[in-house]
Design a protein around this nucleic acid. Structure first.
Lengths: 402, 402
DNA sequence: TTTTGTTAGTCTAGTGGCTAAACAAAGTTT
DNA sequence: AAACTTTGTTTAGCCACTAGACTAACAAAA
């Protein structure tokens, strides 16, 4: 429970907090009996009974018949009703759009992906609407229906959900939140793609058990999502984690951001491709080189390409080391497109970190690659919506009383 | 957990939280009447009256006679009783030890500084005891007496207050917290010097109005203290902010930590001195060059020395830019010894940041130098103790019921 | 089968802290 | 002096929690 700074403490807050504790317990330890919840959360049996009844009325949980007796009356097991509603998560990439419909546990029920290249905003918006329409139509009947829409975008999103800049999409000052809220009359959350990915991994992926996670989204560029003390850290205006433009070489080459020696010039997908082009690597079949081409060349044992990957892994390690020194995280998770090359990146990356990171930082530290692969951001976006729905839902009756 | 503690937990947490809100209001808006507190905090008049009576009984606040009437009965003004107790803050440096005795508002009542060089642990411990003894003896009579001791040390402190490593003092695995607690029977808080400095500036210095502050402690080395969402962020084990060893030049010169191109090789006091030595700057009077010598040379207009400072300022800017990209802070405060040279560092530093930092990061961002100068860490250490005392004090009656 | 013991979940009385509103106190304004 | 304002206290009532009695449902022993 975290005290909200400007809110006073009263009975409503206590009930709300306890209800939330009970629900979380049920979500994470399902199936579980009322008695077990009471004992583990530390609330009185009666209190738990009453809160559980509220949750049952809200259809957020359900009873699943009797459990095993341990020498007495058989308990009634409680389950999180993950089908009480559905959430939509969208990951807008530079040349793809991935949408998922998940239940309240983040299980994917339907997905839809479209790929494109150099589309105008209107065209992408159209694809976005189509995807959302499709996913909404595919949602099963449920007490709460679609509870919200979360969107991850490759750009700068401020604290109010406005997209200030998405350079690779050529978007500027776009209030997508307002557009979607007006069209669908649902709660909409817009987030930076790296933040969404971080949240996805924290909720459903490699970061489930950690409270301090740094998610490195290495794609065309590099963005970073920060989970500190168990929740997303967004900074003063929402612009934290722009670590792709961290200087790792003071007088290095010039970046598109105008500075020199930025991390993403060394360790991103774009960096790999540029390096490959410089090597005059050409392909017989295609015109433009892609990451997948490099991957298959590496699979075939091309030493030059393997060396490219190893170089990139090393540079990834340099930046990650800086991250470790900054944040002292429990876990660093590397995601987005570069994560698919973990086989070739991992060795040099790990070497760089274990040689370079200060010894005390290496205790209790895990460095790993995304567990959700291409779904991190879409799932994270969906998770934002779910989280928002659950907390609002718990406060519902209370705010109605006031 | 003990069921009794849980009983108190939910019911008393409301009172405790509200009492804390009321106390904070009085501290920050003193003098203030009960009625004004009730209105501004949002609590009922009666509730405030009762909480205020508790606080009066605890001597944490006092009444200061009637205030001005605004057309009705004159209010009784309430004041924070900053003399209800005193706190000791210690800043252990590489070659100095600074101790302060402050009241509960962080006002310095007494201070004592000793300087030394190459002392053994036992000798420093002796100085520490002497300083604490002196400060304790100098404290005026008060209801709560000395409420605790806070210590800032130039090294790595884990979450339990154990000093894992203080390289410049040659300390290792030292449980100073235990030693001081046993000797003085008072609550003791040990923190990294940069964390203490950050807290000091947040509470009493340049950072009073910000919630997201990065304090760069630039001395012999560089350490960073992070205030995120208004409170100190320590990372998973307490080792956050080791940014002196952030790589800003991948194949740069080797650092004492074993890596290459660390920030503190370019922007610390040591970096300045090393660069000056390389220039074969020698002094007639002294053997060893010190920062103060460089400062007076710069004052005299020595262009080479000024250029040195400007170079260091530029490199400070490089690292600060990385910090801005990571954290999106409201405020970056540069403290410790290098802050004394702000006159010579400021221009190139500011230029570097304004040219290099992404435009959206520069909104609502202030970069400034320490307001508390050499007292940041000692005051911050003292503030840790005060904060601890006040929160424990508010919970006091509750724990006595158990 | 009956009895005894154990565990699950509900119900009831009591408690603590909050709110609203009445009230007393001490002003100002007309 | 009367009317109005504002402060701070008091009282009654409410709400969510706790403790513990109670009912229900089961296992194991007699």
């Amino acid at each position: 429970m975290n005290p909200r700074v400007n809110k006073t403490w009263n009975h409503h807050v206590v009930k709300e907090g306890n209800k939330s504790l009970v629900l979380k317990k049920i979500i994470n330890h399902s199936p579980i009996s009322r008695a077990a919840v009471a004992q583990e959360v530390g609330l009185n049996k009666g209190t738990v009974s009453s809160l559980v009844n509220d949750l049952l009325e809200d259809h957020l949980i359900c009873e699943s018949g009797p459990g095993k007796s341990s020498g007495g009356r058989r308990p009634v097991m409680l389950l999180f009703n993950e089908k009480a509603g559905y959430s939509i998560g969208i990951d807008i990439g530079v040349n793809y759009l991935l949408g998922v419909l998940t239940d309240l546990s983040g299980t994917i029920c339907h997905e839809k992906e479209v790929t494109f290249k150099n589309l105008s905003y209107e065209e992408i918006e159209n694809q976005l609407f189509n995807t959302i329409d499709y996913l909404m139509a595919s949602a099963p009947e449920s007490p709460h229906g679609i509870v919200g829409i979360g969107v991850g975008v490759p750009g700068i999103v401020d604290n109010h959900g406005e997209i200030l800049l998405a350079p690779n999409l050529k978007w500027k000052n776009l209030n997508l939140k307002l557009i979607l809220e007006n069209k669908y009359q649902l709660p909409v959350i817009i987030e930076n793609e790296a933040n969404a990915g971080a949240y996805g991994e924290k909720k459903y992926g490699a970061g489930k058990d950690s409270e301090h996670i740094i998610y490195v989204s290495a794609g065309i560029g590099i963005g970073v999502g920060l989970i500190l003390n168990g929740s997303l850290y967004k900074g003063s205006n929402g612009f934290s984690g722009e670590l792709g433009h961290m200087t790792i070489q003071v007088n290095g080459p010039t970046c598109r951001c105008g500075n020199k020696g930025c991390w993403e010039l060394y360790a991103s997908e774009q960096a790999l491709l540029t390096a490959a082009e410089k090597m005059q690597l050409t392909l017989p079949t295609k015109k433009e080189l892609e990451l997948s081409d490099l991957l298959s060349l590496a699979e075939q044992g091309d030493p030059k390409v393997i060396a490219l990957f190893e170089q990139a892994g090393d540079f990834l390690g340099v930046g990650i080391n800086n991250i470790i020194n900054s944040f002292n995280p429990q876990q660093v998770i590397i995601g987005n497109r570069m994560a698919s090359s973990y086989k070739w990146l991992n060795k040099t990356l790990t070497e760089r970190v274990s040689n370079q990171a200060l010894w005390f930082q290496q205790n209790d530290l895990t460095i790993c690659f995304s567990e959700l692969s291409t779904f991190s951001s879409a799932l994270g976006a969906s998770a934002f919506s779910i989280e928002n729905f659950l907390s609002v839902s718990i406060q519902q009756k209370i705010s109605m009383n006031v």
